Simulated assay, not measured.
Amino acid sequence: MLTKEAKTVLYQLYKEYLVRRDGNVSRSRAKCFSSAESIHASLFPDWSLEDVEDVLRELGRNGFLDNSYADDTIYDCSLSDVAIVKMENQKKETLLTVADFISKFIP
């Protein structure tokens, strides 16, 4: 389970990944992001750096990011294959959840 903030960050990182892929950036380079500080500055300037780092750690603990640490902060991170698959299948999973919910309540 992810917090709403973590889902927001994951969505934004995936969205950036798709923009990069549409720009013919290789898959391996498109999923690589820089430091927590860079992500904070470019994608979440209204958040505190501490909150961005905390969410990136949460995503790492849950297997959605591969984080590298240096000097007690996230030096580099990249979307994991698990994250990409999860986001690619998001709409399909949502539809299946709705269908499952309806089937339980309609005989």
Rank of each mutant, 00 (worst) to 15 (best):
D100E: 11
G23N: 15
D51T: 08
E37R: 10
E50C: 08
A36P: 03
K15D: 01
E5C: 08
L59I: 00
A70H: 11
F105A: 07
K91E: 15
S26Y: 11
V52D: 01
R29P: 00
D46C: 05
S26I: 07
K15H: 06
M87R: 02
M87S: 01
Y17F: 13
K86Y: 14
S78P: 00
G23W: 06
S78W: 01
F101L: 12
K104A: 15
P45S: 04
Y14G: 01
C32V: 13
N24D: 14
E58M: 03
K91P: 00
N67K: 04
E16M: 04
S80D: 00
N62S: 14
K92H: 13
V98R: 10
D54M: 12
S42V: 10
V19L: 14
R21Y: 06
R57N: 15
M1N: 13
A30M: 01
Y75M: 09
N24R: 11
D76C: 07
T97V: 09
C77V: 10
R57G: 08
E37A: 05
F33V: 00
D72A: 13
E16R: 06
L79F: 06
V19W: 10
D71H: 09
L59V: 01
D100S: 10
G63L: 06
A6G: 03
Y11V: 02
K31L: 05
F64H: 06
S68V: 12
K7Y: 07
A83E: 04
D51H: 06
E16P: 00
V85R: 14
E50H: 10
V19E: 14
L18N: 10
S42R: 11
C77T: 09
F33R: 00
K86V: 05
E5F: 10
S42A: 08
D72H: 10
C77N: 07
T73K: 07
L65K: 02
M1I: 12
S68I: 11
V19H: 12
M1H: 12
T97F: 14
R27M: 04
T73C: 10
V55S: 07
S78T: 08
G63D: 09
V9G: 04
K86F: 15
E16A: 06
L59W: 01
V52A: 07
K91N: 12
R61S: 12
V19K: 15
S78Y: 05
E16W: 01
E88V: 05
K4S: 15
R20M: 04
K86A: 13
L95G: 12
K7G: 09
S35W: 02
R29G: 00
S103C: 05
R20V: 04
V82S: 10
I106E: 05
T94K: 15
N62V: 07
C32L: 14
A99P: 07
E50T: 13
L96R: 12
D66A: 06
Q90D: 11
N67T: 14
H40S: 06
G23L: 11
L65V: 00
P45H: 04
G63W: 04
K104P: 05
T8G: 02
Y17C: 06
